Amino acid sequence: MAITKTRASGTEPRRGRGRPQARSDDDTRALIVAAARKDFASSGYAATGMESVAKSAGVSTKTLYRLIPNKAALFEAVITEGLDRFAARIRLRACDNDDLEAGLREALIAYGELILDHTVLATQRMILSESDTFPEIAETFYNKAIKRTESTLANWLKAQADRGLIKIENAAEAAGMLLGMLAFQPQRAVMFGHTPLLGADELAHRARIVAGLFLKGCAR
């Protein structure tokens, strides 16, 4: 007599794995921008091509061009991605801090972590060396990175002035001075003196000194 095996009650038949879930365009774009950041910093602007970035990111060239149409747009995405995170951090954390000095320290630390970074410094070196041939990359960096960073901090300073906590005549000018106080000397030391980047404790210490000096000068 043939014996028919029955599946245990309550169990489901095993299914094949099937196709993996597709990656979202946002996630794919993030991979592309991360790969481009490394390629621009290590190879330079002229030597970095869309095809090489696609290969580094592990995506097809067709996908890359669908999400980012050309190298100029890709470079702009590299520059603005870090600034988006910086601006969000200022809005969500520094601006919500009732302690003025702590809020300013938070803003300065966020900026220091953004700008005092090996890849960012390598990108700046690349811009300096290739801007005569590609002036558009210097213009992009100035408008999308330098001016936007100053504007983000200037808006924070103006908000504190509107609250009556500090007295400043020109928020944009004050923001530029603050950022220079924090980062200019460490940047030069790394780029020209080949000294190590500031560690987290060193950056926090520098931010505390800069914030204290600034607030003493503009306190009401």
Rank of each mutant, 00 (worst) to 15 (best):
T80Q: 12
D96L: 09
Y142T: 05
A2R: 15
E101A: 12
R148K: 12
T4Y: 12
A47C: 10
V33D: 02
L121R: 11
L92V: 05
T195F: 10
A172Q: 13
S56F: 06
A54L: 08
L198I: 01
A41T: 06
E81G: 01
Q21P: 03
H118R: 14
A22N: 04
R37V: 00
D117R: 11
R163C: 02
T195V: 04
R125M: 11
V210Q: 04
A204D: 12
S56E: 09
F141L: 01
G44H: 05
A87D: 06
I168L: 11
T63W: 07
I68A: 03
V210Y: 01
I137F: 03
L100H: 06
N155H: 11
A34S: 15
L128D: 08
G164S: 04
R208H: 12
A47Y: 14
R66V: 00
K55R: 14
I109L: 10
T195D: 06
T48N: 06
A171V: 05
R105V: 11
A54D: 03
A159K: 15
V33Q: 09
I146W: 12
A35F: 01
L64D: 01
G10Y: 09
L108F: 02
I127S: 03
L178H: 07
Q160L: 07
M126H: 02
R19N: 04
A57R: 07
A87S: 08
G82F: 08
I90S: 02
R85H: 14
K158V: 02
S56V: 02
K5S: 08
H118M: 06
I115T: 06
A110G: 08
A172F: 07
R93C: 02
L203D: 03
S43N: 15
A77T: 04
G16K: 15
I79V: 15
I3M: 08
H118P: 02
G16Y: 14
T4A: 10
G103R: 15
E76S: 15
A94E: 04
R125G: 01
I168K: 04
G176L: 11
E130H: 08
L116M: 12
A47E: 14
I90H: 02
K147F: 08
E51P: 00
A159C: 05
L104H: 07
R91P: 00
D26V: 14
A36P: 01
H194L: 11
I209Q: 07
L182N: 04
A73E: 08
D39V: 10
D162I: 07
M126D: 00
D84W: 05
L203T: 07
T119R: 12
D117Q: 06
R23K: 15
L198F: 05
G18I: 01
S24K: 11
S151C: 09
L100D: 05
C218A: 10
K158I: 03
R125L: 11
G112H: 10
G176D: 05
N143F: 12
E150D: 09
V190P: 00
F184A: 13
D117E: 09
A30K: 08
A2P: 13
Y45A: 00
